[in-house]
């Protein structure tokens, strides 16, 4: 059993940043809109492949990431308007429906991209390593960390400092009343759903550059996102950040110190937290 080096600690924190990007979208959809979207991992993978294809073709990583957001946001539109609205409010049906969608999307991606692994090409200036203290650390992973922090700030400002954010919060508190005040709440919720999906797409493009993309990567990221949101508390942005940090660090600790129990190191503490705080660290009863 060896101790955790700074390098591994940074790996945990940068993985946490990626988890936050994906889980922030998940918490918008699962936490705020109360939609159990088990296709979130599939949306991540779709974003990854889309980012890979566009970034390779255009030679620009950022164009690829943007394309992934747009494409997956539109997939979210189709999913919400085309399917989810028929099972509104019924969690079991949402679970079955979105799980089915996840399988279908996964198979379609397998048909198009095959079973090989891909890595989204990163821009030149993010290749290589940066001097951090006494060691060298991959620049790209530090970029992901920065992106996660920026995204947290942007989402926080959007939710708590804009009218759209106030509309979303009011809609989550009491959709009937805000609707009776003249607001088309369905449209606000659809926009939120698309934003959540787009964040999964962004996560796919960004994560596809250092985790690699392969056909079952969606299930893995879905399980991690679930853990993040359940630990942090449904619908809490701060909860998603803290949850991501915990899961990212526990994942590093598990891999380094208890490789046989890597999953247990994440889900053991999660079970413990749920035993004492059933709504997660920052969650509250619906």
């Amino acid at each position: 059993m060896s101790g955790l080096s700074l390098f591994q600690l940074l790996n945990g924190v940068t993985f946490a940043a990626l988890l936050f990007i994906v889980a922030s979208g998940f918490t918008l959809i699962f936490g705020l809109l109360r939609i159990v979207n088990l296709a979130h991992g599939a949306l991540y993978l779709m974003g990854g492949y889309c980012g890979y294809a566009v970034a390779s073709a255009s030679g620009n990583f950022f164009v690829g990431a943007l394309a992934a957001m747009v494409c997956v946001g539109l997939a979210g539109l189709a999913l919400d308007r085309g399917l989810l609205r028929f099972v509104g409010g019924n969690e079991l049906r949402q679970v079955l429906l979105t799980l089915g969608v996840a399988f279908v999307v996964n198979d379609l991606l397998l048909v198009v991209f095959g079973g090989d692994t891909f890595t989204v090409p990163t821009p030149d200036f993010l290749r290589g390593a940066l001097h951090v203290g006494t060691m060298f650390y991959p620049k790209y992973r530090l970029f992901v960390l920065g992106l996660g922090i920026v995204l947290f700030c942007v989402l926080w400002l959007m939710l708590y400092r804009t009218r759209l954010g106030a509309l979303i919060r009011a809609g989550v508190d009491d959709p009937e009343t805000i609707q009776a005040m003249g607001i088309n709440i369905r449209r606000i919720f659809l926009l939120t759903f698309m934003l959540g999906a787009a964040l999964a797409g962004l996560g796919g493009a960004v994560g596809g550059a250092f985790l690699t993309l392969y056909p079952s990567a969606d299930a893995e990221i879905l399980v991690f996102s679930l853990a993040v949101v359940i630990i942090g508390g449904r619908g809490s942005l701060l909860g998603a950040a803290v949850g991501a940090l915990m899961v990212g660090l526990l994942n590093s600790i598990g891999q380094v110190m208890f490789p046989e129990f890597a999953y247990f190191v994440i889900f053991g503490p999660m079970a413990l937290i749920l035993a004492f705080r059933p709504y997660g660290l920052f969650g509250r009863a619906a």
């Binding site: 009218r163 106030a166 919060r169 009011a170 508190d173 009491d174 009343t177 009776a180 003249g182 607001i183």
Partner: peptide
Amino acid sequence: PQGRRLFPSLTVTEHLTVL
């Protein structure tokens, strides 16, 4: 509405500006 039905996550000002 009966029972007021205010939004717990909105401030007083936000109750007005949200509309």
